[in-house]
């Protein structure tokens, strides 16, 4: 015979608090005309199915729909209003691309004259063969021979940084890498965080004083790599095809086969200090993302400096929970 006993009543956790909900009238409009609405502290929260306003006075934007002459929210988040346009911005969602955004992505498929790129969006992005730079920096039409050797540029699994160029009719984004800033990524590590935590900055290419480059993709993919000095980046004329589409990380010269030594003589090994710095920065970013704190260049710098100040500045210790909490408390408050 099985005996049933109910669970002992728990001390007041967050769940118990929700028992006492307020009586709320369902068809109560939010006061959108309120002057305080535009203030920073007036962020109004809503959730799917809540009436926001009448559709006769307001236009519906993203995150809303119209039913029965009412504008109704379809996602949970903050209500925003620009003049007569009402939108709801979800607290967290997939990446919503815009033209000109910098994204980091991974090649998933090679197709005729195009690559498919996974970029944390709703659909795979497309990188057309006509939107990449050819090795040698020559400007010409892409020939059939280029189509046949597309895998020498990008292969499945390659990571790349690109810019959003346009959209297709179904909402998929088209990328381009027609700049020396963009292209294949190597010498580093990828960190994925929620896209809302990457805000638009003046520059998404950061160089930290610890000899580390950070590329903040607006899609929430962040590339942390060894710093490349500006004078080592070849100019438009001396466009170094070998380096741009290379699949190799930088290695010590002695590790290279003899016949490749000359080609790679400009490259240097990734020393262990740089490797440690890369891991440290990526761990910091993971901690900030776990605490849902938006990234910014100054925040990263402050956090890096804070971890270096600590007595036991071991990179592995960063991932301990109390250490991360202390980091967030120190950086976010100060």
């Amino acid at each position: 015979m099985i005996a049933f006993t109910s669970f002992p009543p728990q001390a007041d956790d967050a769940y118990r608090k929700t028992r006492h909900y307020k009586e709320q009238k369902d068809d109560e409009y939010m006061d959108l005309d309120n002057d305080e609405f535009d203030g920073p502290h007036a962020a109004k929260l809503t959730c799917p199915g809540e009436s926001l306003t009448s559709s006769q006075d307001f236009m519906r934007g993203h995150g809303t729909y119209v039913d029965n002459e009412e504008v109704i929210a379809s996602v949970a988040g903050t209500v925003e209003r620009v003049n007569r346009l009402v939108t709801v911005r979800a607290a967290s969602s997939r990446y919503n691309p815009e033209v000109g955004d910098l994204v980091v992505g991974r090649i998933t498929e090679v197709q005729p004259r195009r690559w498919k790129v996974a970029a944390n969006s709703r659909q795979d992005a497309v990188l057309m063969l006509s939107s990449v730079n050819l090795p040698g920096g020559v400007q010409r039409r892409k020939l059939e021979s280029d189509e046949l050797q597309m895998r020498t540029f990008f292969e499945e699994g390659d990571l790349l940084v690109a810019e959003v160029q346009a959209f297709f009719a179904d909402g998929a984004m088209s990328l381009h890498t027609r700049s020396l800033k963009y292209g294949k990524l190597r010498n580093g590590q990828l960190v994925m965080i929620p896209p809302v935590l990457v805000r638009r900055l003046k520059s998404h290419f950061l160089t930290l004083p610890c000899n580390v480059d950070v590329i903040l993709g607006l899609n929430g993919y962040i590339w942390i790599s060894k710093h490349v000095k500006a004078n080592e980046q070849e100019g438009e004329q001396g466009f170094d095809a070998e380096a741009v589409y290379s699949n190799q990380n930088d290695v010590r010269l002695s590790f290279l086969p003899f016949n490749r030594m000359n080609l790679n003589c400009a490259r240097k090994d990734i020393d262990s200090a740089t490797r440690t710095a890369i891991s440290r920065v990526s761990n910091i970013i993971k901690i900030l993302a776990a605490h849902f704190i938006p990234l910014s260049d100054t925040l990263l710098l402050d956090a890096y400096a804070w971890t270096m100040e600590q007595e036991a500045s071991d990179v592995k210790r960063l991932l301990l929970e109390d250490y991360g909490d202390a980091l967030v408390a120190a950086v976010a408050s100060g």
Binding site: A76, G77, L201, S203, T207, P294, S296, S333
Partner: peptide, 29 residues
């Protein structure tokens, strides 16, 4: 849902410190 959204938004809020200095790009060589 509302309390979850509120806590997410509140966590994402303290950006004021970063924004004040966001104008000067950090390029340190």
């Amino acid at each position: 849902v509302l309390s979850r959204s509120a806590s997410l938004i509140a966590m994402a809020e303290p950006v004021t410190k970063g924004q004040s200095r966001a104008d000067d790009d950090v390029i340190v060589d």
